[in-house]
Design a protein around this nucleic acid. Sequence first.
RNA 1: GCGCCCGUAGCUCAGUUGGAUAGAGUGUCGGCCUCCGAAGCCGAAGGUCGCAGGUUCAAUUCCUGCCGGGCGCGCCA
Length: 584
Amino acid sequence: MTALPLHYLGACTRRHRRHPDIYMKDTIISLLEGAVDALKHQGVLPNDLTPTIKVDPTKDKAHGDYATNLALMLAKPSGMKPRELADTLVAALPASDAIQKTEIAGPGFINFFAATDAAAQIVAQVLDSGDAFGRSLIGKGEKVQVEFVSANPTGPLHVGHGRGAAIGDSLCRLLEATGYDVTREFYYNDAGAQIKNLALSVQARAKGLGPDDASWPEDGYRGEYIVDVANDYMAGKTVTADDREVTAKADADDLDAIQAFAVAWLRREQDLDLKAFGVEFDVYFLESSLYEDGKVEATVEKLVANGHTYEKDGAMWLRTTDFGDDKDRVMRKREGGYTYFLPDVAYHLNKWQRGFKTVINEQGADHHSTVTRVRAGLQALEVGIPTGWPDYVLHQMVMVTRSGVEVKLSKRAGSYVTIRDLIDEVGRDATRFFLAARRADSQLTFDIDLARSQSNDNPVYYIQYAHARVCSMLRKAEEAGQPFDHSIATAHLALLDSDQEKAVLNRLARYPEVVEHAAKNREPQQVAQYLLDLAGDFHTCYNAVKVMVDDDTLRNTRLALGLATRQVLRNGLDLMGVSAPEEM
RNA sequence: GCGCCCGUAGCUCAGUUGGAUAGAGUGUCGGCCUCCGAAGCCGAAGGUCGCAGGUUCAAUUCCUGCCGGGCGCGCCA
């Protein structure tokens, strides 16, 4: 038995996963495969042809529901004119009840018009699957680690962290929905120079100094929260953060005690903000632990032993230029102590050793220079880590405007907009949606005035409103003594035959693919875009087709479409960490 | 100067990995509630997809070069 071409096997698994009876697109693909095979046997097409068959939903309903460019792709290798080949392919298509008719259009597209009852089966599929609709096992349970936010514990989280949190968490939800075993991880840089700066700042406040005093530490943190930390420290308070509890010594001269307290204080602060944002981590990884466990030293020794280091100007350098960097990097400073990048390498080695073949780091693009550096360091370890590991998702800067004026993001100035500000002013749902609904690699303008205006402009309300509308219809039906009857509804789905209803049906059918695509490309904004489209289709349909009619069959069938829409809206919103309210 | 990212309607942004007449929101103008929620719907107007080449049957999408903007180019993280 000869092996099947790879694409063919792919198509087989795809069909089995997606139920060709339900998913029109896969039905069409398998029909086209049948046609291609038939034409090969007839000698019309060359036998060694292994086309990747692409079927897309149409933009214009005049072009039917789905279209393929197959005839255009095969025109050259078959030596036929595109439209002629399209005719031949259509003639060779196996018979199917799912297709009402086909047309050949334009330069040689084949347009498929779905039979209404076949297309409408998606409603039954959605209702049967419920929360599981759109979920898949593509990831096969493979372990994936996503590191995101990873803010320094030196201040409250700002909008940039918020974007990272929204994108990172949504990405995790997408990966979970596609069958991956996801670990959410937050890396705390609690061992570097900026932490000493934090301790000095708190100490200065504890001694009653302010940023304008002559002895205020250079580059000290000026934010008001430093005062709060200092007051709590001097009051001998106890704070709990993640895994540890720290009680203040109330001694303004003990810098180590101040540092331990301040870090715990700010970690607690950040954790509370993240919780309010609906984001929770599985692992909080402390940079300091890498020193305590000797991981940093071990990493240095390995790099030295591999011969990738050298001494210069009293410092120790890593020859990262051997691995694609544009210049070598200092790993141990002249005055002793390591640069941040060394523990970074040690940390990522640790991720690898924990068995994560896929690691995704979600970070601000202002740190993109670390990408090459960390990868280079990992290569220099020579422990079999693949080139280009780990993956990165970098988000561009967030500019915040208020009253049309940019609000500067300056941690040192202490006047930046925090996640907490946004949650309090705009609400969690809107904040999460805004921050995750745009491509990570384009800059984002967050207009506080616009976002806080509680009404009209907010796209998330548009989606939530569609959800609440369906809930309202169901309540209405209950009140009228005509509760939804599932068995009546799903037996007559062919009644969903208006243009508006068909638009919703086609949109629903696309959801699993959208989730798969968004997860694969690490682009949560595709889910946001889809939800806006689905909500739009639904609102249009709602205005065009009256649901609460006297006819039991018609009413229940239309309710079923609403219910299926509600289910998909709910599933999609959940992927973004946004709630699906029953009333607004 | 070098590296990464971006440039699409007045504004904010999508564009399903190369498809047909480039979409949505917002803003402007005009319609739709004695009717399931008007936070909604319908219509109009608004574009040399930064510019110029190249690859292709087909380019907003891929390649090259410019122009413009952001970020980075620390023995900071």
